[in-house]
Amino acid sequence: MSENEKEGSMILEVNDLHASVEDTPILRGLNLNVKPGEVHAIMGPNGSGKSTFANVIAGHEDYAVDSGSVLYNGIDLLDLSPEERACEGIFLAFQYPVSIPGISNAYFLRSALNAVRRYREESEVDAVDFLQLVRSKMALVGMDEKLLQRSVNDGFSGGEKKRNEILQMAVLDPKLAILDETDSGLDIDALRIVAEGVNALRGGDRSFIVVTHYQRLLDYIVPDHVHVLSQGQIVRSGDKTLAHELEREGYSWLDSGDKPKKSEADQKVQEAS
């Protein structure tokens, strides 16, 4: 594909991205292209750089970009502040959503929504309209309305926090959503509800990057593409069957650089179960 053909057709283009945390290189030449409407899964063992990638895209200051480029709808993403990226339509569902005591969930979300709307030069939403909007979205993720008046993520269970992330996503209506280990700490019922929420938001031009260690989330959110991240690079890409292959064979083959022998993979599955 030539440079010209990419132009306009990609929502995200990551080229040879190198990034480090506290001077330790984590991403070492990552390449990824995402088209509008696609769902990409990024899988990989612990420490492969999955969360680093998610945070770099969102613009976290602790993650330094050393070289490479990231284009988002053709503009240089790395030039933007975290809030500008958010306003441009990038949404990160955090692996560990922070709590903010003293600020109600409703107030927080309305502030965020209005910040995004102001940026898009749209009129702000008043409290009544907002409440209607939120209620309709809450049904989507099966969230208790009481949580609206509680402080942001304060004292929420793991499942409530993750649902809250999806609720925020539904309200803020992003163009590119990154789910960072959204399945961690969820039981199977909560996982199903969260995934249903995500699936309801699929469609149109909205793209997703689903970052996960395990394949089980991908049973519910079926990806168009699956990538394997290892030592800061994407080492394999394929369709959804790649996820199943990883589930069977684990990640240990990455160490040797070879395809795994059958026996090793079986052993891995046993350990995991």
């Binding site: 969102a58 613009g59 976290h60 200051e61 502040s81 975290p82 809030e83 990226r85 958010a86 306003c87 949404f91 990160l92 955090f94 959503p97 922070v98 903010i100 927080f108 979300l109 502030s111 965020a112 910040a115 995004v116 940026y119 925020q168 803020l172």
Partner: peptide, 8 residues
């Protein structure tokens, strides 16, 4: 950062 990521 959490607030920033939500556009605030």
């Amino acid at each position: 950062f959490y607030c920033n990521q939500r556009g605030i």
